[in-house]
């Protein structure tokens, strides 16, 4: 895939919606196109986290390994979603497994490259951080709603 095609795909992803064009170009410099087949792992819990993913198509399952039980599916992510914020916070370690359950097309962002660019250009870094902060808040909110089990009749 040439760089123009990659740029179009990146610009089309909700994560970069409204992003200043020079910042899109900077992000593009750390971006590559990746495909996975069902059963492939995008990353595994405990490993170092030096990338994140902008999902284009397909479904990825986030799983937690429970000893003597195996994988527990916590959530799935699909086209338009972002996957992974462990690259942002030291010690950069994944907490879940991410497994493709269908054919998956993603843009993979090299986090070493991105962390470097964020250090060099704080305006770019702040833009990225704001986008991640919004997504993290979103994730925490979703998780708390999942925890309270809102479908269960509330007993008085």
């Amino acid at each position: 895939m040439n760089i123009q095609d990659l740029e179009h795909i990146l610009e089309d992803h909700p994560f970069v919606q409204g992003m200043h064009y020079p910042h899109v170009r900077t992000l593009l410099g750390c971006c590559s196109n990746q495909r996975y087949s069902p059963g492939d792992y995008l990353f595994r819990g405990g490993q170092e986290s030096h990338e994140f993913f902008l999902l284009r198509e397909g479904t990825v399952s986030l799983e937690l390994y429970v000893p003597q039980h195996g994988g527990l599916r916590v959530e799935t992510r699909g086209g338009g979603d972002l996957l992974g914020w462990s690259w942002l916070i030291k010690p950069y370690r994944w907490h879940f497994d991410a497994k493709a359950i269908t054919d998956v097309a993603t843009l993979m962002i090299d986090a070493r490259c991105l962390r470097q660019k964020c250090e060099e250009d704080h305006s770019f870094g702040y833009d990225i951080l704001k986008r991640f902060a919004a997504l993290m808040v979103h994730d925490v909110r979703a998780m708390s709603l999942q925890l309270i089990d809102m479908h269960k009749p509330l007993r008085a």
């Binding site: 909700p14 399952s61 195996g70 599916r73 799935t76 359950i101 269908t102 979703a142 999942q146």
Partner: peptide, 19 residues
């Protein structure tokens, strides 16, 4: 909550809105 045999989406319905 979906078991490992469930091939569909797992997560809140609000997550689908983003997609």
């Amino acid at each position: 909550y979906g078991g490992m045999s469930w091939k569909g989406n797992v997560g809140l319905v609000t997550r689908l809105i983003g997609r």
